[in-house]
Amino acid sequence: MENLTSNIIAAVGVLVTGTFSYFVWKATNATAQVANATFELSKELAQKEDNRREEYKRIMRRQLLSVISKESKIVYDAVVDIDPMNILMKLRDAPVYLSINKTELAEYFSVDEVATIIKAWETYESYRTKYYKETYRGNELKLLLEKNQPVIIHFEELKDKLNNIEI
């Protein structure tokens, strides 16, 4: 009888262990399914966030490109003239600096694009500092015409670059 009792206890132990093992397996399987679904959802959310960032970058790039083009055209039109008095009058209304800072340029444009933009504007700023004045003596006014070629060249390069930028 003792042997039978031991066998019954052993059988009940195996049955209970098997039942618990089954429930642990089911719980582990369910947890794995939840983890997999959570992972897939996280991937989808990350992709949507990447898409949102890329769209924001395109929008910002388009807006900044518009500002750069507009301000650059004003500068170019100001310095391209055959009469120094016309250049002087146009420079009075032209921007002194590009209204977009270098950090924004670097964030939304390629290194090559940024280099072209900065080179044109630095050339213009240097020209303006050296030759634009409120009052002129003697032949100083002619310098606006005689020294405008580097500005014209760099802004023509910038115009070409801006026309070829993809958004």
Rank of each mutant, 00 (worst) to 15 (best):
M1L: 14
M1Y: 07
N3T: 12
N3L: 13
N7K: 12
I8R: 04
I9V: 15
I9G: 06
I9T: 10
A10M: 07
A10C: 08
A11C: 09
V14G: 11
L15A: 15
L15S: 11
L15N: 04
V16Y: 08
T17P: 03
G18R: 02
S21W: 08
Y22A: 11
F23L: 15
V24L: 11
A27I: 02
A32R: 09
V34F: 07
A35D: 11
A37L: 14
A37K: 11
F39D: 07
S42R: 09
E44T: 14
E44P: 07
L45F: 01
Q47Y: 06
Q47A: 15
K48F: 01
E49V: 02
D50M: 12
R52E: 10
R52I: 10
R53K: 15
E54V: 09
K57Y: 02
R58H: 09
I59Y: 04
I59P: 00
I59D: 08
M60N: 11
M60D: 06
R62Y: 10
Q63A: 12
L65P: 01
S69L: 05
S69W: 02
K70A: 09
E71L: 05
S72A: 15
I74M: 04
D77P: 02
D77W: 04
D77S: 10
A78L: 06
A78M: 04
A78Q: 01
V79C: 02
V80Y: 00
D81Y: 03
I82V: 11
I82M: 08
P84G: 03
M85R: 09
M85Y: 12
I87Q: 00
I87E: 01
L88D: 08
K90H: 08
R92H: 12
D93K: 06
A94T: 05
V96L: 12
Y97K: 12
Y97L: 15
S99Q: 15
S99G: 14
S99H: 13
S99M: 11
S99D: 15
I100V: 13
T103F: 12
E104S: 15
E104Y: 14
A106E: 15
A106W: 03
E107P: 01
Y108Q: 04
Y108E: 03
S110G: 13
S110H: 07
S110F: 10
V111E: 13
V111R: 07
D112V: 12
D112C: 08
E113P: 04
V114C: 15
V114D: 04
T116L: 06
I117G: 00
K119F: 05
W121F: 02
E122W: 05
Y124F: 15
Y124M: 11
E125D: 06
S126L: 14
S126D: 13
Y127S: 03
R128D: 04
R128S: 06
K130L: 15
Y131G: 00
Y132P: 00
Y132W: 07
K133V: 05
K133T: 06
E134V: 13
E134D: 14
T135D: 12
T135C: 10
T135S: 10
R137E: 14
E140M: 11
L141K: 04
L141H: 02
L144T: 01
L145E: 07
K147D: 08
N148S: 11
Q149T: 11
P150G: 07
I152D: 00
I153H: 05
H154I: 04
H154R: 06
E157C: 05
E157P: 00
K159L: 09
K159Y: 05
D160R: 09
L162F: 03
N163Q: 09
N163R: 05
N164P: 00
I165A: 03
I165W: 03
I167L: 14
